[in-house]
Write a protein that binds this DNA or RNA. Sequence first.
DNA 1: CCGACGTCCTGCTAGC
DNA 2: TGCTAGCAGGACGTCG
Length: 271
Amino acid sequence: MPELPEVETVARDLRPLLVGRALVGVRRSRKALRQSWSKAWEAQLVGRRVETVLRRGKWLLVGLEGGSFLMVHLGMTGRFTVVAPGVATERHTHLVFPLDNAYELRFRDARRFGSVTYFPDQPAWQAFLANRLGPEPWDLAAADWRSALERTRRPVKAVLLDQTVVAGVGNIYADEACYAARIDPRRSGNTLRAAEADRLLQALRDVLARAIESGGSSIRDYVGGNGQQGGYQREFAVYSRPGEACPKCGRKIKCVRIAGRSTHYCSRCQK
DNA sequence: CCGACGTCCTGCTAGC
DNA sequence: TGCTAGCAGGACGTCG
């Protein structure tokens, strides 16, 4: 679910609610997340104040005093929110960190594709992400993006979804970026000309920036760190609208399967 | 080595 | 109206 704009929104929402607050305990459900929670981490966390809330790709990092970090991935259905005192614990809540102001930081995840893990310091989580994540979209050099496309026969859509090439892009924004760049997501990476690659990278950055401004996209489960919905779903040109009219030319938007993911595009506007 | 595909899990809904 | 197959913002392991 949550892609870069959603995770960025959660980070921005959580920052004022968490920084300066101390975690005063840990409660958890019996169910395992994608990575199992270690009881030994709890002693490292309890009593620590939050110093920073960061985002890297689709990962959230909560920095604690003393230099340790909680690293959170929302998977498809994860929610990471601060809730007011007295709010009943909702279904699928797997981790709760009570705060020193009686509010609670809660991790909910129906499908449990998400994870919450502990790292003792910044080099440790950076090492974990090093071989999994490429640069942020704004840090990716145009030349590196071109060469990533040139050296593969995979569809452009699959390259956009590859976290080792560029961090943070998921199914929604891959489709929206291809539409904005007028590029057919089925094309092999190595068929894109340099100008097309450049156009796609620019479109990707534009789409992501606008989605962040709207607080992300809420289509099923996603809410921000304060529980509020995003608004970018109203701006979708193609995602989740197969059969509807293309906003530019009116032709019916197509939906096909690429890299195992549903992919939406306009066959007239995207070449 | 590269790329396609299955798997993890629960909930919702399109279509019968 | 009621049931169920199939699909859903992701990531990773396996197979050919």
